[in-house]
Design a protein around this nucleic acid. Sequence first.
DNA 1: AAATTTTTGTTATATTATAACACTATACTC
DNA 2: GAGTATAGTGTTATAATATAACAAAAATTT
Lengths: 140, 140
Amino acid sequence: MDKKSKSLSKNQKIVLDFIQKNKKPVKAYSILSNVQKKGINAPPQVYRALDKLIEIGKIHRVESQNSFVACKISNCDTPHKTIFSICNSCEIVSEINDPKLFKNLKDFRDKDGTVFDGYNLEFFGTCKSCKNKQIENTKH
Amino acid sequence: MDKKSKSLSKNQKIVLDFIQKNKKPVKAYSILSNVQKKGINAPPQVYRALDKLIEIGKIHRVESQNSFVACKISNCDTPHKTIFSICNSCEIVSEINDPKLFKNLKDFRDKDGTVFDGYNLEFFGTCKSCKNKQIENTKH
DNA sequence: AAATTTTTGTTATATTATAACACTATACTC
DNA sequence: GAGTATAGTGTTATAATATAACAAAAATTT
Ligand SMILES: [Zn+2]
Ligand SMILES: [Zn+2]
Ligand SMILES: [Zn+2]
Ligand SMILES: [Zn+2]
């Protein structure tokens, strides 16, 4: 029985459910205030659930934002092998599923020949929607 | 006159000097406590200097550690194009200078064709020194 | 020298995350 | 199924990281 098929605890379900409902990444204290009606009262309850959900790969942490987002890649059952694109303007985050890039990163060795267990890659730019808005604004 | 050749202010010099003296990344409040004797009294003074030093590429932020490290790549004059290897055990950080990987990341486009301004890549593993220590320990 | 921009110093506060402890639920083992 | 180990819960307090806001000084530009 692998990690993924183990059933989640009550708090883990509540937190995961809230993260999955959001298109954008969410912050820990935003999660907290949104799930208080479900009986989660304090930060440690949220952070514990987050830790577990990250460990089993259901969510990822967006390091540059201190935020958390649901995994969008069905077979992403491990944590710490993540690639995101992040819009500098609207802060929307997309998980990137690019086989060639995966391979490049998986095969990477440093000068010593050290193999790495995991990685996190975050690309920064302006998303299509924000770019269009900027063009709109310069027209007027 | 490019950003790099502009001379640094007093506080910027103090903070950069301290970061460069350290082999490992340093935390903001560790910087603060270590430079108080030089007349830097409060967090904003440190964070402002850090922001500027990051902007001009003299230092980088290690996102997964909330820490700051001097740039080790002479021609790394832009921020936000960074690759690090990080030891899970001793937390030592090395900036990676790998032309092939640079090219892969520079050339990456998402499905939309969006071009990215920058990226941050952090590899996680066990450094050679820590791996050797682990082997030592299993011997006894 | 006046105006603008950058940097400084300071106080207060916001945001993010964990320590510690007592207790409960679930899973595992014999 | 009783005993035991493991994982999860609830709670309070506090640690660690980062920024807002404002007034003053210094450096740079015009
Ligand atoms: Zn994923
Ligand atoms: Zn956007
Ligand atoms: Zn660098
Ligand atoms: Zn190490």
